[in-house]
Amino acid sequence: MNTPKLSIALSCAVAVLMLSGCAASVKSGGTETLVIQESAKQNLIVNFEGNSKVQQNEDWPRLKREWNDALQVEATRAGYRLTEAQASSQASKDGVGIKINVTNFRYLTPGARYGAGVMVGNAWVNSSADYSDLKSGRLIGTRTYDTSSSVWEGVMSAMTQEQVQAISQKIISDIKSAKAK
């Protein structure tokens, strides 16, 4: 290969690497084994909560909406029905309550990353999920779900929307793999 072609090929390879970024990875924790009846897995009720700092963040409604949408997609993929908690109680049905507690987050859109690059900083979500039996109200278990991006991953690094998608995949995977009673 002559020098100009090698130079172009190398430039293209570097550009692809800089634009490719990494998928969001989730750090998850929890010590207890989740035990959920198969019939209860079919009915998932999610509720989002945040501390006062989280609730005052102007992006809190957007985060909840995108997270609920991502959970809907993953639940449907797994063959489960997921609804967001409403004022009406569904305690008489078999099911799993998922209370997602957000302790901190920094919302970034891909547009912000594309427009300002590394200057916008990192996106992250710190959360936990309490799983409970809908009929009895008994706590089944708790898991932590944290994710973050790095500006050094490039302009395509995982922004908040991709992060909540990754957490949603992990939540549904944890439910799916839970041992039956």
Rank of each mutant, 00 (worst) to 15 (best):
E84P: 11
I100L: 03
S149K: 06
S148T: 12
K135C: 12
R62S: 15
N47Q: 15
G97P: 07
V73G: 06
R106I: 07
G97D: 01
S148K: 05
V120M: 00
E58G: 05
N47M: 14
A87E: 15
N122M: 10
W60N: 09
Y107E: 15
A87L: 15
G117C: 00
V46A: 06
N47C: 14
L134G: 05
L82E: 03
K27Q: 12
R113L: 07
N101I: 07
S136V: 07
L139Q: 11
N51C: 06
I140V: 04
V155N: 03
F105T: 01
G141M: 01
Y114T: 05
R65N: 11
L139R: 03
Y131Q: 08
M119P: 08
N51L: 00
G154S: 07
R113T: 02
V102N: 11
T144K: 09
D133E: 10
P61V: 00
V26G: 11
C22N: 12
A129I: 01
G50P: 15
K135F: 13
L139V: 12
A78F: 07
A129D: 08
S28I: 12
E74R: 12
V96D: 01
G30H: 01
V125R: 02
V125H: 02
A85C: 06
E49P: 09
R65C: 04
A40E: 07
K27A: 10
L82I: 09
A85E: 06
Y114P: 00
G111M: 00
K135S: 11
A112K: 01
W67A: 13
G29H: 06
D69Q: 13
T31L: 13
A91V: 15
C22R: 06
N43C: 04
W60T: 07
M18H: 06
I140R: 03
I98W: 11
N51A: 00
R113Q: 08
G29V: 01
S25N: 02
Q86E: 14
S88Q: 13
M18F: 02
A129K: 12
L71C: 15
L34M: 09
E153C: 03
W124A: 15
S136T: 13
S132E: 05
Q72D: 04
Q56R: 14
S28K: 15
R138P: 12
K135A: 13
K41S: 05
K99G: 04
S52V: 10
K53R: 15
V151D: 12
I45W: 14
E32S: 09
Q72T: 11
T76D: 09
G141C: 00
L108H: 00
K99A: 09
K93M: 13
Q86L: 13
V35R: 14
G117Q: 05
A40N: 03
I98E: 10
T142C: 10
T144Q: 05
